[in-house]
Amino acid sequence: MAMIRINNLTKYYGDFCAVNNISLEIKKGEVLGLLGPNGAGKTTTLRILTCYMPPTSGTITVGDYNIHDHPLEIKRMIGYLPESAPLYHDMLVYDYLGFVADIRGLKDNRKEERIRELSQTCGLKEVMHRPIGELSKGYKQRVGLAHAMMGDPEILILDEPTSGLDPNQIVEIREIIKRIGRERTVILSTHILSEVEATCDRVVILHRGRIVADDRTEALRTSAGDRRNIRLTLQGAKAEDVSKVLSGIEGIYSVGAGGPEDGAIRFTLTCDPKKDVRADIYRAIKAHDWIILEFYQETRTLESVFRELTGEG
């Protein structure tokens, strides 16, 4: 069941096309990573989804509502943390969270309880009675996260939630996102690839306002591309013999051998990605008196996928 349906969404700023005819469905309970270089259209897409600005054409439906006719209902379902958490500098953290709770329609006793819960979850206890303007960037980001989570929304939208945080805080925030992601729909935009690998079930890569990839995080890493590499290091073998034996196996395109190091030779096998040849390789090696020191399939990093899809030229 699709929670969010984006249909042919297009947004122009003057002559500049920020989002170019994208369509996307996001299921309930999915953690979706929106990835892309700067200016790819991530923030614009999120801003349209949160009813901050209307699209030039196309529409988005959230549940039973669409952004043109029922923005208020959609806003009620969504908790949104904009990029770099632009909060009121003069307000105290506690007052600000109270204000958000009021807007989200929490009643008095529930409100106190919820603020306490969130100060716990987001680690805000020490700063509750300080003005937001005096906080460090990491704390501001956490206040922003508490802001987004206040109404216990069905959909959580986070625009670069970990930018400006130190590595410990990043881990904490990722944990929070994962925890929420078990019951809620989460969309997070980022250009940090490891973040997507650590938190998201699914990745959508945007480039120049278009979707260039949309797949499960795992699938995108292993199956993209037209070849896969297997690394092999053997001891007590001759390069020619190994090449002869292994090139005989169906699905292996070529065998490259490196120079001998301490009596071992390093091979790189290029194979058909649709066929798993590892068992065949093992059997072939077993038939000879070669010692396996290393044997692994190279998975492509998300970085290389990303560069391939969004690189210039």
Partner: peptide
Amino acid sequence: NIGSYELLTTMPVT
């Protein structure tokens, strides 16, 4: 100017 306008208008207010 500080961008809190975006936070404000994406909350359920008109």
